[in-house]
Amino acid sequence: MQVETLKDVLHWTKEFHHHLSHCLSRGVNRQTDERARMLLNYLADHEQRLSKVVSEFETSGDAHVLNTWCYEYLQKSPIVRHQHCEVPFAKLDAAQIIDVIVDQHQQVIELYRYLSARADIPAAKELLETLESLEEHEIMRMVHSTHRFEDL
């Protein structure tokens, strides 16, 4: 996917969460640890919800802002490709699973932070900061919730 505008970044992020949800779901049936299976199910559902939230930004955002070009920024710092399905979630324990998920989300947060720091249009900067904050809060929420699985 060629990412040139903020709308493309949102579309990429929506697909990132959707694809990650799919990868997590695929690992559920192959996982032998019950706690890890529960975690994979929870994370897959959470990623699917995040995909829908980002989709709302993509469809209801200001067209002027969404059409802001960010191509030259991304040439210098390309976005990560969907590589998380290469991770064998079925073979990881709960702690390893959450480490992978946090790492994947940190890459998205860094992308938003990078683009926000270079945004010339205040509305674009605000959108990127909102998305960065959303990702940060969601990863904190996921990590907090996953700690509950350890208590089971």
Score class of each variant (00 low, 15 high):
Met1Leu: 09
Met1Gly: 12
Val3Glu: 00
Thr5Trp: 07
Asp8Lys: 13
Asp8Asn: 14
Glu15Ala: 11
Glu15Leu: 10
Glu15Asn: 13
Ser21Phe: 03
Cys23Phe: 06
Cys23Arg: 11
Leu24Asp: 05
Arg26Asn: 15
Gly27Asp: 14
Val28Asn: 11
Arg30Lys: 10
Gln31Met: 12
Thr32Val: 07
Thr32Tyr: 07
Arg35Thr: 14
Leu40Asp: 15
Tyr42Val: 04
Leu43Asn: 06
Leu43Pro: 02
Asp45Leu: 12
Gln48Arg: 15
Gln48Ala: 13
Lys52Trp: 06
Val53Lys: 05
Val54Asn: 00
Glu56Asn: 06
Thr59Gly: 03
Gly61Leu: 11
Asp62Lys: 14
His64Asp: 09
Leu66Gln: 03
Cys70Asp: 00
Cys70Ile: 07
Cys70Ala: 13
Pro78Asn: 04
Ile79Ala: 09
Val80Met: 09
His84Gly: 12
His84Tyr: 14
Lys91Pro: 14
Leu92Asp: 15
Leu92Phe: 12
Ala95Asn: 07
Gln96Met: 11
Val100Leu: 08
Val100Arg: 06
Ile101His: 02
Ile101Ala: 05
Gln104Pro: 03
His105Asn: 07
Ile109Asn: 02
Glu110Asp: 00
Leu115Cys: 03
Ser116Arg: 08
Ser116Met: 02
Ala117Gly: 10
Arg118Ser: 02
Ala119Glu: 00
Ala119Asn: 06
Ala119Gln: 02
Ala123Val: 01
Leu127Gly: 02
Leu128Ile: 01
Glu129Lys: 06
Ser133Val: 02
Leu134Asn: 01
Ile139Pro: 00
Met140Gly: 10
Met140Ile: 07
Arg141Leu: 09
Arg141Val: 05
Val143Ile: 09
Val143Ala: 05
Thr146Leu: 05
Thr146Ile: 09
Thr146Gly: 06
Arg148Ala: 13
Phe149Leu: 11
